[in-house]
């Protein structure tokens, strides 16, 4: 699935955005299936707004976001759920885990929302890779941010997707853990021939990016 943006400008940031040059806002930009995109976004430029607009959590923008040949504004209800189950996966900056569920249950939930992409054993395998096996039975609300972030990463990889949207996915991780997580993400995207859009504050070399743009 190709993602295409046509003159997208978020309404609350309109003034600010029109004052400066952006490679993303208010332009026509196309992300082709399988491309790994890095978007560098200094604070306050609308990084999270951008991810939320792509994922259709926010609708307060002018212009159009296209998922393949569908205008995302016209996709609602069960069809929207279908896109989120099959085409788009996401790692939120604020993680968004269910605090009452255990770490494993949080991951499991995203695994069984649709016809499972992986067996349940895959959770243990990925948890092992990211070093969070010991907290799988713990309530997510009691885990540290670093642990929660790794749970959120594993959760996003449990489903099928064409695109993985990431909003500062390593913000709570040290270098070693970031390396492991990036390796896992790269692996999973390759397996699916999927692309990703990674939003971050600074430059980095976690991945072999196809394109780097500035927000």
């Amino acid at each position: 699935m190709q993602i295409r943006l046509q003159n997208v400008v978020p309404v609350p940031l309109r003034e600010k955005i029109l004052q400066r040059k952006s490679e993303v806002w208010n332009t026509n930009i196309v992300f082709d299936q399988g491309h790994w995109i890095k978007i560098k976004a200094p604070s306050g430029t609308g990084k999270t707004t951008f991810i939320h607009t792509l994922y259709k959590i926010r609708n307060d923008y002018s212009g159009d976001v296209w998922w393949g040949n569908q205008n995302s504004r016209e996709v609602t209800g069960d069809a929207l759920a279908q896109i989120r189950q099959q085409k788009l996966s996401i790692i939120f900056q604020d993680l968004r885990l269910f605090g009452e569920l255990t770490a494993r249950e949080n991951i499991e939930l995203n695994r069984v929302l649709q016809e499972p992409f992986y067996e349940g054993a895959m959770i243990d395998e990925m948890a092992e890779q990211l070093g969070v096996t010991h907290i799988l039975r713990q309530r997510a609300g009691l885990c540290s941010y670093g642990e929660q972030q790794r749970i959120a990463i594993i959760r996003s990889l449990m489903q099928p997707f064409d695109w993985l949207l990431m909003d500062e996915p390593f913000s709570h991780l040290d270098q070693e853990n970031t390396r492991k997580a990036a390796a896992l993400i790269a692996d999973e995207c390759s397996k699916r021939k999927a692309g990703f859009i990674l939003m971050d504050l600074d430059e980095d070399d976690h991945f072999n990016y196809f394109k780097r743009v500035e927000l």
Binding site: I57, G77, A81, R84, N110, L113, Q114, Q159
Partner: peptide, 15 residues
Amino acid sequence: DEIELLVTLGASPKQ
């Protein structure tokens, strides 16, 4: 809140 997050994660209204 739970329902909102479920829908965000891709739970369909039908489900």
